[in-house]
Design a protein around this nucleic acid. Structure first.
Length: 911
RNA sequence: GGGCUCAUAGCUCAGUUGGUGAGAGCGCACGCCUGAUAAGCGUGAGGUCGGAGGUUCGACUCCUCCUGAGCCCA
């Protein structure tokens, strides 16, 4: 096959086999060496900004698929914005304080932790957190995420902590912070108050007991129901529903009061067959009646509340304002019932509980029931399985316990409504996010911000040893913040009260100088929620507000929520202009991932097995606004797609091997098919750009994957192959095609680079045609959309030609099946039509038809039907060089077995 | 239990304000090519649009309920 040497076959160093597992680390090394982040920033100096503010992941453990998704999405957005000409700085951050790390560190230390000082434990936590940051940093980088990894932010850095205090000082100064005794979710195992975010709900079996309380002014009894007998020492009231009916019932020689709706059910439970309803009345008539606590002989007032459940129990609910949220709100806030909570931090009854003092609440139920039986007040005990709050760390059931805590009031200065107004001005993607977070803000209670933990940002509060006043003063906060800037928050533990207080500071209430520091720390949501202040307003390369926050939809309650509340307090403004949320990752069946189900996909494993680009491609293929799915199968599918795209790059590169921008053919001189292809590229650019602008990456993926495999691989590249290989290197026919290939490749590389970060970089390195080149595709510019390159006449003509092509392909397949031909070049295509338009069209493109249909000859003539195609063997002999058949093949003695076209090309080559 | 969200071929996604027989890519099956070759091309088979009602002349598209799944709460 000597003629093979005379062809212009594609050639490139860009390997067909990706071998991403080895190649990606090499590209990472290149980026590291060139300082890619600063390189990109430098190339966008003075450009308009787009600031995406990173929500800090918790610095604990290896990254999982969810955190990987989040970071890749951010990276994709930023890469896109940079290509669009924005200066888009990205400062990654970490959330480092809080219980999970403290828990992990103390359990790792084991018994040793007990002999360690708070300072020593804090130091161990800090070391652990910093080490985790390094681990996660490397893992995020492995995914191809570009950012200012050297100058990351972290909530444990002194300069960050300093800014937390600036926000906190403002909160205190403006009067948002108050101290109150309030039942808070409490884990007596971890000995701490818990935020709602630290609670998990699991099924739990509780006792279900009925108890009768004697009425003070009569011999009647009110039947109450509870699932927490141990809270009865805290009982100060009984709630009934105002709008439901209640009844007086005679049972033996007693009269009981309970809800009419639950009468039958209760009697059934109590196994009482004989009873008689004496009277039926509205629940609200019971309001403010007094019952007598069976254990303490004290008064228990009846209140009305619409939360009273009419499905279970007796319709008369035991109220302990010290042991429940609703009990507190209705009982204490509305009726002024006393908050009794005789339980210490370990869950042991205090002296206030009388005879139960010293007993753990977990063991109290039995005792209390026995006492109730002894008093004759006990009616029945059962079991009930229900969803019950558990501690997120130790997984044990939690309780409500009234303690002194610091709170942020959401009503002060109309804060709630101010936040709501800001929410309204933010763009939420998807749009239902606005509704979701609005509802949450609408309903959120005051924010309990104190934690009884060591590893956190200390609340710089003092206790007056003389009058017991808890002191939180902006002056002290400010004074301490300055210390923190220098020494970090450890100073709170290291320095004495004298050093921590402004000179001469005295208790405002009693004037005492005898003050002791308190050791509560701040809720970590204050830490991360203050990032707008610690990062956005602090770093000169960033802006406040940020253009975008991008996190999972769980952050409507979390970070978006805490951030906007604090930002409205500090700046009267939302910290973000747009909030983009994504869903969660599930397995192939749509089930949540869990170790026990064994359906967990590890992003690092995907990287080490297939490459980060495959993971990124998978993400791009998914509609991440909702929950998305991943599995081995789904990943393998992306491997196939990846190969297709990679091969398209490779083929384009190979055919542009001898092409430079000097060879570009102006639009007017392009061949019609090439004009069509260039027009299609414009349409692709337009639709891809629109998709990116809406952050619809799955649309980008679909458009471009289809473009590569259908329009390029199956159609355009297949057709143009003949010209590229066979025609003279410098011929217009060849350069015309290469011109279009050049635009296609350049556009594709840029448009896919936010997704296939590594592969596009690699291909860009092999892309030699371009004169002005950067060191990285990342600073390239988005392809220009040339509307004038869409020739409507040509586009329309080719639509019609494509229709004829579909028809012809079926005819070709038929005779291929019959064994008449193999390759389509063996064929002659005969087209018949009764339609003038079609015949005119074919006439107009006559000289391009054999190329277009990839056959050796095309004949067309008037026929009977609208469109009819037939195929037969081509006339003449097969040319040894271009494999096309031609009647005159072999007539050139100088070049045996060639067709006239090839002979002509060869003559030129020799000359 | 409440709020929000999702449910279209094996997989990933399209389906404009309800309107002729439900689409694409991948995968799969069968075949072709051997000058993109651990590639390339062609043809084809796959869906009662989660289920049940309802509104309408007509619904994958609107309403109700149910089932399953997820996030956030209780």
């Amino acid at each position: 096959m000597e003629y093979r040497q005379t062809l212009n076959l594609p050639s490139t160093e860009f390997a067909m086999r990706a071998n991403l597992v080895e190649k990606e680390p090499r590209i990472l090394e290149k980026w590291r060496e060139m300082g890619i982040y600063n390189y990109v920033q430098k190339h966008r100096t003075g450009c308009p900004t787009f600031v995406l503010h990173d929500g800090p992941p918790y610095a604990n453990g290896d990254i999982h698929i969810g955190t990987a998704m989040n970071k890749i999405l951010k990276d994709t957005v930023i890469r896109y914005k940079v290509l669009r000409g924005y200066r888009s700085p990205y400062v990654p951050g970490w959330d480092t304080h809080g219980l999970p790390i403290e828990h992990k560190v103390t359990t790792t230390l084991g018994t040793k932790a007990r002999s360690m000082s708070q300072m020593e434990i804090r130091k161990a936590c800090e070391d652990f957190a910093r080490q985790q940051i390094e681990v996660q940093k490397r893992q995020f980088q492995r995914l191809g995420v570009v950012g200012d990894w050297e100058n990351y932010y972290a909530t444990l850095k002194p300069e960050y902590e300093y800014k937390i205090y600036e926000v906190f000082e403002k909160l205190v100064n403006d009067g948002y912070v108050y101290r109150a005794k309030k039942p808070v979710l409490w884990c007596h195992n971890c000995r701490t108050a818990l935020a709602q975010a630290e609670i998990e709900y699991h099924d739990h079996t509780s006792p279900s007991i009925y108890v009768k309380f004697k009425m003070k002014d009569s011999d009647e009894y009110i039947v109450i129901w509870t699932t927490t007998p141990w809270t009865l020492p805290g009982n100060t009231g009984i709630a009934v529903h105002p709008d439901h009916h209640y009844v007086r019932v005679r049972v033996k020689d007693e009269v009981w009061i309970l809800a009419e709706k639950l009468l039958a059910n209760t009697m059934d439970e109590l196994k009482i067959d004989e009873y008689k309803v004496l009277e039926d009345f509205d629940g609200k008539l019971l309001e403010n009646k007094i019952a007598i606590h069976p254990l303490y002989e004290r008064e228990s007032r009846i209140i009305v509340a619409d939360f009273v459940d009419m499905e279970t129990g007796s319709g008369c609910v035991h109220i302990a304002p010290g042991h429940g949220e609703e009990d507190y709100e209705y009982g204490h806030l509305m009726y002024g019932l006393e908050v009794i909570s005789p339980v210490n931090e370990e869950g042991i009854f205090t002296e206030e509980a009388g005879k139960y003092a010293g007993i753990h609440i977990d063991k109290a139920n039995r005792l209390i029931i026995d006492d109730l039986i002894a008093k004759g007040a006990f009616l029945k005990e059962g079991k009930i399985s229900h969803s019950y709050p558990h501690c997120w760390r130790c997984k044990k059931p939690v309780i409500f316990r009234a303690t002194e805590q610091w709170f942020i009031s959401v009503e002060k200065s109309d804060l709630r409504n101010r936040v709501l107004r800001q929410i309204d001005m933010v763009t939420w993607i998807p749009s239902w996010g606005k509704n979701r977070i609005s509802a949450m803000i609408q309903e959120r209670p005051d924010w309990c911000i104190s934690r009884q933990r060591v590893w956190g940002t200390p609340i710089p509060a003092f206790r007056c040893n003389d009058c017991q006043e808890a002191i939180l003063d902006p002056l002290i906060i400010n004074h301490f913040a300055k210390v923190v800037k220098e020494k970090g928050t450890n100073a709170w533990f290291e320095l004495s009260e004298r050093e921590l207080l402004p000179t001469g500071y005295t208790c405002k209430k009693c004037g005492s100088k005898n003050l002791s520091k308190m050791y509560d720390t701040l809720d970590v949501w204050i830490d991360s929620g203050a990032s707008f202040e610690a990062v956005l307003t602090t770093r000169p390369d960033l802006t406040f507000p940020a253009d975008m926050y991008l996190e999972g939809s769980d952050q409507h309650r979390g970070w978006f929520n805490s951030s906007i509340v604090l930002s409205v307090v500090k700046h009267d403004k939302a910290p973000y202009k747009t909030v983009l949320t994504h869903g969660f990752i599930k397995d192939e069946e749509g089930k949540k991932m869990s170790k026990s189900l064994g359906n967990v996909v590890d992003p690092l494993e995907v990287c080490s097995k297939y490459g980060a680009d495959v993971l990124r491609l998978w993400l791009a293929s998914s509609d991440y606004f909702n929950d998305i799915r991943i599995s081995q199968n789904i990943i393998l599918q992306q491997v196939e797609v990846y190969k297709k795209v990679r091969n398209t790059f490779r083929y384009l590169l190979g055919n542009l091997n001898d092409f430079s921008e000097d060879n570009i053919v102006p639009f007017e001189k392009l061949l019609p098919l090439d004009k069509w292809a260039l027009g299609r590229l414009q349409q692709i650019i337009k639709s891809v750009t629109e998709a990116y602008e809406n952050y619809e990456f799955s649309r980008v993926y679909n458009i471009l994957v289809k473009y590569c495999s259908v329009e390029l691989s199956a159609i355009y590249l297949d057709i143009v192959k003949d010209r590229l290989y066979v025609e003279s290197k410098d011929s217009l026919k060849r350069r015309s095609a290469q011109t279009v290939l050049y635009y296609i490749l350049k556009s594709l590389l840029v448009m896919l680079s936010p997704i296939l970060a590594f592969t596009c970089e690699e291909a860009y390195e092999h892309f030699k045609s371009q004169k002005m080149k950067y060191e990285s595709v990342q600073v390239e510019h988005w392809p220009e959309y040339h509307e004038e390159w869409i020739d409507q006449k040509i586009m329309g003509d080719f639509d019609e030609l494509m229709r004829i092509r579909d028809h012809a392909l079926k005819s070709l397949e038929e005779i291929r099946q019959a064994g008449t031909i193999g390759h389509s070049l063996d064929a002659k295509l005969i087209i018949k039509s009764k339609t003038e338009e079609i015949l005119n069209l074919l006439k107009e493109y006559e000289q391009y038809l054999d190329e277009f249909f990839i056959v050796s000859q095309v004949e067309f003539s008037k026929g009977e039907e609208e469109l009819e195609t037939r195929v037969q063997r081509a006339d003449g002999e097969k040319c040894d060089r271009c494999w096309k058949y031609h009647p005159l093949t072999g007539t050139e003695p100088q070049f045996p077995k060639t067709c006239p076209r090839c002979a002509e090309v060869l003559r030129k080559q020799e000359g």
